[in-house]
């Protein structure tokens, strides 16, 4: 890695102001687990990194909202989520998913904001958050806005965030009687990156079914959602319609077969899950 300038502002607002409006060599750094890897690989060569490590501590808080949902600061670590009693009560699927996510040391430092801004299409948490109907609140010199997690990825490693826009918080709505499940298929070890991830959130009259690690970005499988009452039919509809992107972990026919198997299993798991 080459030398660069590191700044450590004390507030989120200052951090946003330290980012360039259209300079791709200036990036925020949170846990650093993704961006340091990209720097080591030479795919990202920063002139300046803006560390979020010293911003106000409230941006790492996990809180239950009055409506029964969750407000999670962008700097909350995955370990904090994994062990939070509020998460276990309001969205237990997140805690279950995290047990098989990366490893203890990565979870100890990786943050919610960094996880969502990274926009790697092969991740475990984004599909779960999309299924739960989560949104992020962002801040930039233009002010604040709210973006559905579903709309955050703009493609392969790309988001709709502007270069000087920071994720401030994640908002997960109250799930009421909805039941959720996430199934991760790995081909080498249980904690590996997913070869396929399927997240399901089931209501009385609808289902949200989200695919990860097989398409250009995590996305809802609407053809399967329309057949949600019959898991077998839903799985066939998903396999017939999904546009798969192959990678080192699986070819198109292999991943298509995994979709056929895992959409059915994930729907059945959600049906059996406690709400």
């Amino acid at each position: 890695m080459r030398a660069f300038e590191l700044v450590e502002p004390a507030t989120l607002r200052e951090a946003a102001a330290s980012l360039g409006a259209d300079d791709s060599t200036i990036r925020p750094i949170a846990g650093g687990t993704a961006i340091v890897l990209m720097m080591k690989a030479g795919v990202f060569r920063p002139e300046r990194l803006v560390s979020l490590r010293r911003i106000e501590r409230r941006h790492a808080a996990i809180e239950r909202t009055a409506e029964g949902g969750l407000h999670i600061g962008a700097m909350a670590t995955l370990t904090a989520l994994e062990h939070s009693a509020d998460i276990r009560a309001a969205a237990p699927v997140i805690a279950r998913m995290l047990r098989n996510h990366s490893n203890v040391r990565v979870r100890n430092v990786a943050t919610v904001g960094g996880n969502l801004a990274h926009a790697d299409p092969n991740m475990d948490m984004p599909p779960v958050l999309i299924a739960l109907g989560a949104r992020v609140t962002t801040i930039s010199s233009d002010g604040e806005r709210s973006i559905a997690v579903e709309d955050l990825p703009a493609g392969f490693y790309q988001t709709v965030l502007k270069p000087n826009e920071l994720i401030a918080a994640l908002e997960i709505p109250a799930q009421h009687a909805r039941r959720s499940a996430y199934l991760k298929c790995t081909t080498r070890a249980a904690h590996d990156w997913p070869t396929l991830g399927i997240a399901v959130s089931l209501g009385d009259n609808d289902a949200r079914i989200v695919i990860s690690a097989a398409t250009e970005r995590p996305m809802r499988l609407t053809a399967a959602e329309n057949e949600f009452r019959d898991p077998r039919k839903a799985a066939e509809a998903a396999a017939d319609t999904v546009k798969i992107m192959p990678d080192a972990r699986g070819s198109i026919p292999y991943k298509r077969q995994l979709v056929r198997v895992y959409v059915e299993r994930a729907l059945r798991a959600a049906m059996e899950a406690a709400s």
């Binding site: 590191l6 450590e8 750094i29 650093g32 687990t33 340091v36 890897l37 560390s51 490590r53 370990t79 203890v104 040391r105 990565v106 100890n108 430092v109």
Partner: peptide, 12 residues
């Protein structure tokens, strides 16, 4: 807390 030193900036 345990971290991977290979990914953790010394500045941190």
């Amino acid at each position: 807390t345990a971290v991977s030193g290979c990914l953790h900036l010394a500045a941190f």
